Simulated assay, not measured.
Amino acid sequence: MTPDTKEVENGTTNGPSVSLRTGRKLTRNYDLMHLGLRLVSLLASIVALAVMINSKEKSTISLYGFEVPVYSKWSFSESFDYLVGVTSVVAIHSLLQLFMTSRMLLKKCSVISSRNHAWLLFAGDQVFAFAMMSAGSAASGVTNLNRTGIKHSSLPNFCKALHSFCDRVALSIAFTFFGCFLLAMSVVLDVVWLSEY
């Protein structure tokens, strides 16, 4: 019996057993990061959605010396409708992924069962990250117009009169972009998993 054979029988080799333990540790860390990202992504989407849906305000503005009543609500803008739709879908996606991830962790299995599953997650996370980015960008344009008014016209800055509405919309947009960042981080984790396994 050679020394190498004794080491393998005693489990003292630094080869496969160490790499197997390291692989399990990496997989467990990946699974926990995946779970954390899904949870925070779900929360960011819910906050963006809830704040936008509660965005409405009544006030008055002075236009050519006349007091004109104004009322603004998120549903008056197609860009805000789009943001509500996208954040709703992303919240549902994140909830489903969180549920599946939790179930797999409770079974003490890897969150990703196969390369096909990893590719599916990679594609889905990318699509939803781009959708969140486009929704946040579209809503930002409308919000910027509300804050600055239209140059070379008499259209005023509505956010002076409707500051609470504009602040809520801005907060919703910020959480939308944060959700986009979290989904992008999930894409990075998917790429790491695909390159390692």
Rank of each mutant, 00 (worst) to 15 (best):
V51Y: 02
F175R: 01
S55V: 00
A91T: 08
K160Y: 00
R28A: 15
G65H: 06
S94T: 03
K160W: 00
S41F: 01
G85R: 12
V51P: 02
G149N: 07
C109G: 00
L63Q: 11
D167L: 06
V18Q: 12
T101E: 03
V89F: 13
S75V: 05
L194S: 03
S41A: 12
G11T: 05
A139H: 07
W74M: 03
L37W: 02
V111C: 01
V169A: 11
M104E: 10
L83Y: 07
T87R: 08
V187Q: 06
L83I: 07
A50P: 00
H163A: 02
L120K: 12
S45G: 09
S19A: 14
L106K: 04
T101A: 10
I92D: 12
I150C: 11
R147F: 11
S164P: 00
G179Q: 11
N29W: 14
T148Y: 11
N116G: 15
S137F: 09
F158E: 04
F66H: 11
F66Y: 09
Q126G: 14
F178I: 10
N157Q: 07
V51D: 03
V18R: 10
Y197S: 01
S88L: 15
V8F: 06
S79N: 11
A123N: 05
S172W: 04
D125M: 03
S75C: 05
M1R: 03
T60G: 01
A139R: 04
A131K: 02
L189Q: 08
I61M: 09
S172F: 02
D81R: 15
F76I: 07
S110T: 01
V142D: 10
